[in-house]
Design a protein around this nucleic acid. Sequence first.
DNA 1: TGGCTATTTATACACTTGCACAACAAGGCC
DNA 2: GGCCTTGTTGTGCAAGTGTATAAATAGCCA
Lengths: 225, 225
Amino acid sequence: MPDAADPAPMNAPSRRKFRREGEERRRQDLIEATLDCVAELGLQGATLRTIALRAGVTAGLIRHYFPGKEELLQEAYTALVGRMTEQAKAALVMEDASPRERLAAFITANLNPPIIDARVFSLWATFLGRASADPTLARAHREGYLGFRNEVEAVVAEVLAAEQRKLDAGQLRHHAIAINAIIDGLWIEGCLAGEMFSPGELAAIGIKAVEAELGLAPLEQFQEK
Amino acid sequence: MPDAADPAPMNAPSRRKFRREGEERRRQDLIEATLDCVAELGLQGATLRTIALRAGVTAGLIRHYFPGKEELLQEAYTALVGRMTEQAKAALVMEDASPRERLAAFITANLNPPIIDARVFSLWATFLGRASADPTLARAHREGYLGFRNEVEAVVAEVLAAEQRKLDAGQLRHHAIAINAIIDGLWIEGCLAGEMFSPGELAAIGIKAVEAELGLAPLEQFQEK
DNA sequence: TGGCTATTTATACACTTGCACAACAAGGCC
DNA sequence: GGCCTTGTTGTGCAAGTGTATAAATAGCCA
């Protein structure tokens, strides 16, 4: 029942002003707002009203663009995974660089900001925690992960080929799995406790570990002084 | 308003029977039920009523043992971290075994069930996703992590000492960080996609990677045939 | 300029949530 | 055995949830 002593009944309506945005833009904004909320407040805190507030719209609008909350979250996670793998792989597109240099650059990129990032880690962990119960999330992750590992495997193959070394597919796969684990593990440590490491320290550790894994002599530019 | 056509109004009360349990036992049960719910339903699905149902009590009882939901979740996470590190370190208490053997056994234990486990991973990820926003969770994690890494560092020191190799503290720390990352990364891969690896495969990959990191010649029993 | 339509707001609703509290009974103590 | 403590249940409540839907208005096209 409405309060009889309404403090501002001057001229009743006063509806909120708004602008119409393009569909793509709105969907993008809503997904971004969703990721913000999940990162800061967790899945429980990411309510439709909070997300809408963050996106600068009202809650009802969300249902105009997404069938329901679940679909919004799934699309947000898909967008996140896509951005993460894209960002990671971007470090590999170096023209005229030796395989060794590309591998080192790849590791360095993945173990420094902006890929080392507490917000992204929070999102990654939050969504992944639900993966075992939500096949859609599990698939989105699996695809991103395998894409990443295949990139690793391709660079490793190039590096070893440049060194005239021949490995069978199984050994190559094992190297890729191990290197992927090294990068993942260091990425987590960096995201969770970045202040425990000096700048570039994680990348240096990662490069040395990967070189050891592949049995490579250290490149001069990365050797200890 | 109560249904006028109540189907079972025979003799009104019919209160639920219950047993009094010891305080420690009840708290333990409630924490276990909480972990179950979080693992299967996520933090959002872990409601007081669901948790109570799982524990075989009614929701009101929880407030008898915990000030509120948040404290229950924190205690549950603390218990989880404690159990994880305890389990991991248990693999190190091998009397009369060489450092190399103990290191290998440590890696093997951490990369096989029951430490490789989808439920534990789900819990780990779910809680860690909130760590950046919840200092209590962050501290619980940090303590567990550093404890684990110190164990790694101690074994590594023993292994290298047995090989007559001397490293300064910085190099030792770097090795421990890298080895920790290898184990963490492979653990995640195993938990998320255990069926992609044959039994023992992850442990084999991990041991070889760690041996490479430390510059050790493979032990005979782990060499490829 | 004046409609038309689709985007956007606002309200309503059924349901769930965490928490408070009164009633109850299980089991030890005398 | 009867009582008394307190572990346990059941109910109630205000706040918040996702969803449905009606009402409004922004901006395009004629």
